[in-house]
Nucleic acid binder design. Structure first.
Length: 293
DNA sequence: CATATGTCCTGAGAGC
DNA sequence: TGCTCTCAGGACATAT
């Protein structure tokens, strides 16, 4: 039986998936928080900071004034200067609709009005939900040294940030301190579209190539947002209405090892490991990698 | 300082 | 069939 091409791999929320979550809950802007609950279940508890009682005391009755995104995090701004940050990491979802299952539901924000709630669901439990005062949030930003967002960074800053490391470009793209939002899936996709070898030393990339990478990045991320992100074989990723994304159909290389390149049609997509993560590439479009045949 | 590796976590799939 | 092992990769801690 032929395998379903839509049913290949698995995704962790990166910029397009988190942006889709953010857009999906934007309708809560203007609503007041009725209550918050840490949802009890059989799983190990995830990090909710501060504890439930303090969290509740600080947000109950407050109005959501904006829903923002910071790299791979969803940020709720409240009118009392508190900020709620959802960090989905591997398998976390921010939902308005019923979650994929009740067992891994972690946190619930009840709202006055419609929608009636925002949920945080996380199968693997590496994600977290944190509340910061304005001052704490600023301190947190300094502490985590998050780089400029991949969708708003200028070409000049992009090249400046990534050009300062001697690591491979694929590895550098994953570093959230340099540019924020790109994860393992989109790093491979971007470099393939830009026809750049993933093992190239970042500091040695030339201006014309930076421009290709920058444009490929914007193209791939916007295309992926348009299709509401990528949902891979484990089906974990869902938008705020618990509907899978559609971008997996358009992946050029990620999860396509052994299949033919969609661009040159003559070569076979290869996979190898960089910094303990899979890299997918086309040896014909992007050049060969030493030690691979 | 820059870079590399280990850690957390769950469920799917491989292999015996 | 049922066990054990490996793998997937977010962000951060620790090591080199």
């Amino acid at each position: 039986m032929a395998s379903d091409p839509d049913d290949n791999e698995m995704v962790m929320p990166e910029l397009p998936e988190v942006e889709t979550m953010r857009r999906g809950i934007q309708s809560i802007v203007g609503l007041r928080i009725r209550n918050v609950h840490r949802v009890p279940n059989r799983c190990r508890p995830i990090l909710i900071q501060p504890g439930e009682a303090s969290f509740r005391r600080r947000v109950t009755g407050q109005r959501v004034i904006a829903v923002d995104r910071l790299g791979k995090r969803v940020v709720l701004r409240l009118n009392n200067d508190y900020t709620i940050v959802f960090e989905p990491r591997m398998t976390g979802l921010v939902l308005l609709a019923d979650p994929p299952d009740q067992e891994h539901l972690r946190f619930r924000i009840e709202l006055r009005g419609n929608p009636t709630q925002v949920l945080f669901w996380d199968r693997r439990g590496l994600g977290n939900v944190r509340l910061f005062s304005c001052r704490e949030f600023e301190q947190q930003l300094v502490k985590c040294k998050i780089g400029p967002d991949a969708l708003t960074v200028s070409l000049t800053e992009f090249k400046e940030q990534l050009g300062k490391t001697h690591r491979a470009i694929k590895v550098a793209l994953l570093d959230q301190h340099l540019v924020a939002g790109i994860g393992n899936l989109y790093a491979s996709e971007i470099l393939h579209l830009a026809s750049i070898n993933p093992t190239r030393r970042s500091a040695r990339i030339r201006n014309a190539e930076w421009q290709r990478i920058y444009e490929a990045m914007r193209h791939v991320l916007n295309e992926a947002i348009h299709h509401e992100g990528s949902t891979l074989s484990d089906g974990t990723y869902r938008n705020a209405l618990n509907i899978p994304g559609g971008y997996q159909k358009y992946h050029r290389v990620y999860g396509r090892e052994g299949e033919s390149c969609k661009t040159c049609a003559s070569s076979i997509v290869k996979r190898f490991v960089q910094a303990q993560r899979s890299t997918f590439f086309c040896p014909s479009c992007q050049g060969r990698v030493k030690g691979l045949r």
